[in-house]
Nucleic acid binder design. Sequence first.
DNA 1: CGGGAAGTTGATATAACTCAAGGTAGGTGG
DNA 2: CCACCTACCTTGAGTTATATCAACTTCCCG
Lengths: 214, 214
Amino acid sequence: MQAYTSSRISLSPHLAQPALPATLGSGPVQPISFFPAGSEIYAQGEKAGAFYQVEFGAVRIYRLLADGRRQISAFHLAGETFGFEAGATHHFFAEAINATGVRVFRLNAGADMSHQLLPLALKGLTRAQEHLLVLGRQNAIERVAAFLVDMVERQGLRQVELPMSRMDIGDYLGLTIETVSRVFTRLKDKGVIRLLNLRSVEILKQDVLQTMGE
Amino acid sequence: MQAYTSSRISLSPHLAQPALPATLGSGPVQPISFFPAGSEIYAQGEKAGAFYQVEFGAVRIYRLLADGRRQISAFHLAGETFGFEAGATHHFFAEAINATGVRVFRLNAGADMSHQLLPLALKGLTRAQEHLLVLGRQNAIERVAAFLVDMVERQGLRQVELPMSRMDIGDYLGLTIETVSRVFTRLKDKGVIRLLNLRSVEILKQDVLQTMGE
DNA sequence: CGGGAAGTTGATATAACTCAAGGTAGGTGG
DNA sequence: CCACCTACCTTGAGTTATATCAACTTCCCG
């Protein structure tokens, strides 16, 4: 994990997400570690023992099969936390999708942070289980719809920024990039979304999307 | 949640799984609630506020889509715990697969159980994320192999008891019952497994299964 | 022993994948 | 500042794994 650590990088002024609960922010303020696009934050098998809060940018959490197939289990945007795991080692990889700043909170052996971490773990658990429904039982258009609705809800705007590539979206939804691309085109032709550019989608009919995604 | 509560039902003598950490077993012993096959333990939307330990039998946790499609996110066997959730209401259904006994631990507002619950939540999170890889990126035979390997590891025996139907297995793996059935046949023909009866599988080549399942 | 649910097997349909070619856009260096 | 270059994305044609529909079989359980 090679990070460019700096406590002097200025905070992104357009942090959309709420800050951590006050209890986590107390004490000395954590410095921000900077990760360039595509760089690794931690790897499967590495020693765990910290958790992370995204200050700006975006992070993907994933696993690999022996032959290179990849499943992204989660994306984390500004304001969100990740990295706490069962046991002493990481079961997943975490990578910066693009230039990303992260606050690292080390779990020192003494302090008991379970009270703060439990709600975060439970929220992650619910998220993962809801994602299971999408991957197990929904078709391509429903998967993309569910993904877009999720992004709208997390960003709180009708114009959604997608920090990740089509490949990332495919690996998150269990689809190929071609299928993701075709579904975007179909949604565009139906007038449900508008593609401002490759990484920016305007949601025109959120109700339709919502219905598709469940 | 209509349970036949009884503190007098004798514990199943063949509990394969380890008991809860001592800290959870301290204090007055919880009575066992009995649920007949197919009965509901809790429903989506119900008030949460307890967690559950399986004493005997098996439980399925699932969600439904509007049109009835079902995704089982987890099975819980004797010794395992479930039911803790983010927020005040359940996001999932829990049902007894067959005659099942459960200890219910109510979370009284005063006591802070986060220390005990965090490891359980994290384990569940890891499990769910690993299941995401199976549903997102593995084919039918790999999914069934992963499922069987998981059952072998949880039961600790080469002869695996499957308390659930083919339908349950399908809804857990994101497959139809026909596909599950065909894969069982293929594995049988390859000499990887032997079907003692519908609910009992002998694992003949665990290494082969293991390799398939990842 | 009979009946019904659960499971298996077969034939066909289809959604998504694969392979391939072309297009677009963003970034770099001349 | 423009043109090129390369990544990324889109679109098309053909293939394939799994779903669907249907018939048959087996296993329990009463």
